[in-house]
């Protein structure tokens, strides 16, 4: 369970990214965070694994306040959290397999990893992760030779290889076309259901949010303005969260054969 207790985050330039957030997210939940651009979605998601560190409050995971962790403890903590980015963040010139193996770095000693001495079990795990997202045959290709959707799958495989308890995804489909977006969301949903991995996903598109989420959290100006099961959400809810009428741009379009 992840618990935010009065979490606030002020950026060094004085901008307040999060304002007194109180939330608790249960294990195995598929949570989608929505809000306008600049609402603080990325800030919220990135504060969970402390890519940006909250400046006040407590962030409890498994009952421990993770904000008190030392650097070393923080790295051990991060290796249990997978992260997926809008721009995939792959090392383009490296092979797909090497990118996926990066998910084992937290479990591999520095010297061993620099010499590329990953254990056979790790390599097998990496290949299995690739297979789960359907691109095991691309293992030895260079990452930049893959299409956008394939690259995003590589980054999902990288997260899976961490064998995480939680996956954070910051706008994972914002750079993809509608059919591919659905395919990637389906992958995430399947992983969530099969492995019982908690998913916290930022999304722009309201139709995707309603289709895949168990629970939707709405942010505006760094504050939680909505929190409820996806089933209870209608377009009206989004209009309340966004503070404006829904536009064409807020939808991906319903392509369910991706």
């Amino acid at each position: 369970m992840i618990e935010f207790r009065n979490v606030s985050l002020t950026y060094p330039n004085g901008h307040q990214g999060l304002k007194n957030i109180n939330l608790s997210i249960n294990d195995g939940e598929f949570v989608v965070i929505v809000g306008l651009s600049g609402a603080g979605k990325s800030t919220l998601i990135r504060s969970i694994n402390q890519m940006v560190k909250p400046t006040a409050g407590e962030l409890l995971i498994g009952g421990e306040n993770t904000l008190k962790y030392s650097d070393r403890k923080l790295r051990q903590f991060r290796r249990n959290i997978g992260m997926i980015f809008q721009n995939y963040n792959l090392v383009k010139r490296s092979s797909v397999l090497r990118n996926v193996l990066a998910g084992r770095l937290g479990h591999t000693g520095t010297l061993r990893s620099i010499l590329s001495l990953f254990s056979q079990a790790d390599v097998r795990l990496a290949l299995e992760s690739l297979e789960r997202v359907g691109i095991a045959d691309k293992a030895y290709q260079r990452a930049d030779q893959l299409s956008g959707g394939q690259q995003q799958r590589v980054s999902i495989a990288r997260a899976l290889t961490q064998q995480p308890k939680l996956i954070l995804a910051d706008e994972p489909v914002a750079s993809l076309d509608p059919p591919t977006s659905h395919a990637v969301m389906k992958d995430l949903k399947r992983i969530n259901q099969e492995d019982n991995i908690t998913m916290i996903v930022n999304l722009h598109a309201i139709d995707l949010s309603m289709q895949y989420a168990d629970r939707i959290i709405g942010l505006r100006n760094g504050e939680v303005v909505f929190d409820g099961p996806a089933a209870s959400v209608s377009e009206k809810t989004f209009e309340d969260i966004y503070g404006r009428p829904i536009k064409e741009d807020d939808l991906v379009g319903d392509v369910s054969n991706g």
């Binding site: 097998r124 290949l127 030895y140």
Partner: peptide
């Protein structure tokens, strides 16, 4: 999705 490929063959 079922495993479609034996990873040992890669």
């Amino acid at each position: 999705m079922k495993p479609s490929l034996d990873i040992r063959t890669i």
